[in-house]
Amino acid sequence: MKNSNIPLSRYEQMLRAEEECDSITAGRRAKFYSPAFRAAMEALKPVHKTEAEPLREPLVSK
């Protein structure tokens, strides 16, 4: 039977603290990216063209 009077080791204390916290998180922007930031990110994404475009007008021999 475990003796509850035995003090926890520091390692056990740290694990206990992690367990008792709602979530283990850290971050600068607390919740989520703002709509403006998301829009800016979308604008930065490269655009992939589905069809190859001719580099120049085809030469027409007269």
Binding site: Q13, M14, A17, E18, E20, C21, D22, S23, I24, T25, A26, G27, R28, A30
Partner: peptide, 14 residues
Amino acid sequence: LHSLPGALGFYLSL
């Protein structure tokens, strides 16, 4: 680091 509120106790324990 900046801790989110729910994790503050964890970092203090570290």
